[in-house]
Design a protein around this nucleic acid. Sequence first.
RNA 1: UGGGGGAUCGUCUAGCGGUAGGACUGCGGACUCUGACUCCGCCAACCCAGGUUCGAAUCCUGGUCCCCCAGCCA
Length: 558
Amino acid sequence: MSDQSSPTNFIRQLVTADLGAGRYPQGITTRFPPEPNGYLHIGHAKSICLNFGLAEDFGGRCALRFDDTNPDRESPEFVEAIKADVQWLGFDWKERLYHASDYFEQLYTFAVELIDSGHAYVCDLSADEVRGTRGTLTTPGVNSPFRDRSCDENRELFEKMRSGEFPDGSRVLRARINMASPNLHLRDPTLYRIRYQTHHNTGDNWCIYPMYDFTHPLSDAIEGVTHSLCTLEFEDNRALYDWVLEHVTTPSRPYQTEFSRLSLEYTMVSKRLLTILVEQEVVGSWDDPRMPTLSGMRRRGYPPEALVDFCTRIGVTRNQQNVELSVLDNCVREALDPGTPRAFAVTRPLKIVIENYPEDEEEELEALNHPGDESLGTRSLPFCRELYIEHEDFQEDPPKKFFRLAPGREVRLRYAYLVTCTEVIKDSSGEIIEVRCTYDPETRGGNAPDGRKVKGTIHWVSARHSAQAEVRLYEPLFVDPEPHVSSEDDLKNALNETSLTTLDNVQVEPSLAAAPPGSIFQFERLGYFCVDRDSTDARRVFNRTVALRDSWAKARAK
RNA sequence: UGGGGGAUCGUCUAGCGGUAGGACUGCGGACUCUGACUCCGCCAACCCAGGUUCGAAUCCUGGUCCCCCAGCCA
């Protein structure tokens, strides 16, 4: 019934119906309208995929528009980061790169139109007074004493607001709607405020700035947006969106449709909280691989296709959407598995010595870069008498169904030889520090000529040739699947103290020593790892993008 | 106790008066030189109560629970 390649949702159905009814002979237009006051996160990815995806699939257009009407918190740094993130996800706004601030002059004219038709007035009430007269959820507000100023007076006052004759915050332009409306957004909402603040795009040209509810519908109309998609918390704003468009002469008539915002288990995307994480140095930066930002995910090694796939899978509805982390993990693994080269890395090294392998001998063994895809070729792995294996792959007293190395057991060193454990060496405290083995020279490459089978295959590196590296393992930033953080005090309790684990004695195969930042590998039997920009020539740093599924770990936990 | 929304397997989602399907998770198995990948199987849902209808997740009525709104933020 549902076809994964062509997902449907209520917005696609709406667009299909609109197009079918011939409402948009020129095709549809959508837009992704971020405010450049922070970095994009996984929630934005959903909106980006929806808006750009719709335009792509229905032969329409999608713009990137910065909703930059609040100079207090916006900056060019964010503008650039947002552009980079959208491109990284794989979307192209072509020539449609817009700023709401480019419309300031036009918006001013629209405001004057509202004043002239008696639908807007200049109000001298202070912010506190406006709040005090707005009423409550259950009681109506009261009219401003300035509500009935003449059009001429309003017009003159508004011009003076613009020309800088009034101090910061002293007056606002308000829509004249209904102070008794049950919808709070319709109780004479503020349209313009006075703010002496340099704007990242318009500089000091303006000291009055339009509010979102005024700017957004008009920007949409100016750009010919047909479907203005936003999240559910703007549902009540729609009445105002429509009111503005109905009371101003606009070049087109867009319609707003809301969908639910994404909430992902163990993550939090509130800009305020993310900013605190960065400022208090809970994380290293906005692109810390633990951050739910697109830049964090990029640095972590998530391929953009995985995020697009994720957005497709979670769908678009008006339900409260609380998505499990496993869905994202699965998308990342699925995107990475087909083309990612394999390599060997030993994260917690245990030395093994092959007693019957000559001290001075070394050889090269051939390994597949991808067992499922010959086109990725092969590489050679140096082999000698001393190797490292994963500490976890040896147990002196193994439990049932442990297939790896143990005293007297034979296992396969992948792509190398079958080895049998002969002796365990411990230090004075009883810690296992070395394992002795013998190898079967007849099993070069990993197969026994006599056909005997071994149940376990483990990875390894040559102790003489391996390079030391650092590995960073990541877990969610929060302990609770639905983190509730309202104060900075909450934050301390909510944080997962083991969100970052650094392993600094990781031994990697030689081919990894010069891997460029950003490149990604599957460390066999461990997971996908991405070379971090913190790498130096002497030492690579690998971020664990996502672990492999581990059914042994699961079984063992029971 | 105003207004606006939403309730389908554990989670996400399909359904649009005619056998409740898919994905992720979980469980079991096959395969395996990655305990990976892949493949197969299993568990698992219509918020409640009435009503309309031959037939209701879908339509109607009444409840219940959850979310959003009182910025000169977006």
